[in-house]
Each structure stands twice: as C-alpha cells, then as structure tokens.
C-alpha cells in the first residue's frame, strides 16, 4: 500500500467527516424558527444525554454502570464536576478490581 494512497484515503475520510459536522449547520439555515424541526432540535439535548449515557454504560459493563451512577449521585449532592468524576472513576476502578 502506497503512502500517498493512504494519505489520500485519510484526507477523503477527513473531508467526509467535516462535511457531516458542517452540513447540519449549513442546512439548518433554511429551517423555520417556529417549525416542527426547530422544536425537535430544541427538545433533543436532554434526551440525547440520556441515550448517550445508556450506550456508554452498556459498553462499559457493570463497572461502567457503577462509576456512572456514583458520578451522577455525587454531582447531584456536591454540584462539583471534579468530585463527581473522581468518585465515579474510583468506584468504577474498585468495581472492576472486585471482578464486576
């Protein structure tokens, strides 16, 4: 496999990914502010957060679930991200160490 061919493929994949990132932004210019699509986008973030977390917990296994729950509860109590992440990662490591 030629270096130049690998370089070209990487550039092509990079352009594709950027087109997806910028595409939604550019296409949305033609969207009505009070339309259904606009309302959908306004309501989407919280729901996407939950779906993202569920996917992450599944791929992380039981240790991931324990860590995420501990991070969430710590954040709700302390409102400090660093404390939540520290506690969550420590809990996940501990759960992993005991074989969860």
């Amino acid at each position: 496999m030629h270096d130049l061919q690998v370089f070209a493929v990487i550039c092509m994949l990079g352009i594709t990914c950027y087109a997806m990132r910028a595409g939604g932004y550019l296409l949305a210019a033609s969207m009505r502010e009070d339309g259904i699509a606009a309302r959908f986008l306004r309501l989407a973030p919280g729901n996407l957060f939950i779906a993202f977390i569920v996917g992450g917990c599944l791929s992380g296994g039981p240790a991931g679930l324990v860590g995420t729950v501990v991070a969430l509860v710590t954040m709700a109590i302390t409102t400090r991200e660093w404390a939540a992440l520290g506690a969550g990662f420590a809990a996940a490591l501990a759960a992993s160490a005991i074989g969860l």
């Binding site: 977390i53 409102t79 996940a92």
Partner: peptide, 19 residues
C-alpha cells in the same frame, strides 16, 4: 482502557442534574 471508555459517559452524567 477503563478511563478511555468511562470518563466521557461519566462526564455527561454530571450534566444530568442541571438538565
């Protein structure tokens, strides 16, 4: 591997109380 896999999920979980 554990840090790479879990920290993004845990970070987003910390946004849930405000949401």
């Amino acid at each position: 591997r554990l840090a790479a896999a879990l920290l993004p999920t845990m970070f987003i979980a910390t946004l849930i109380p405000s949401q």
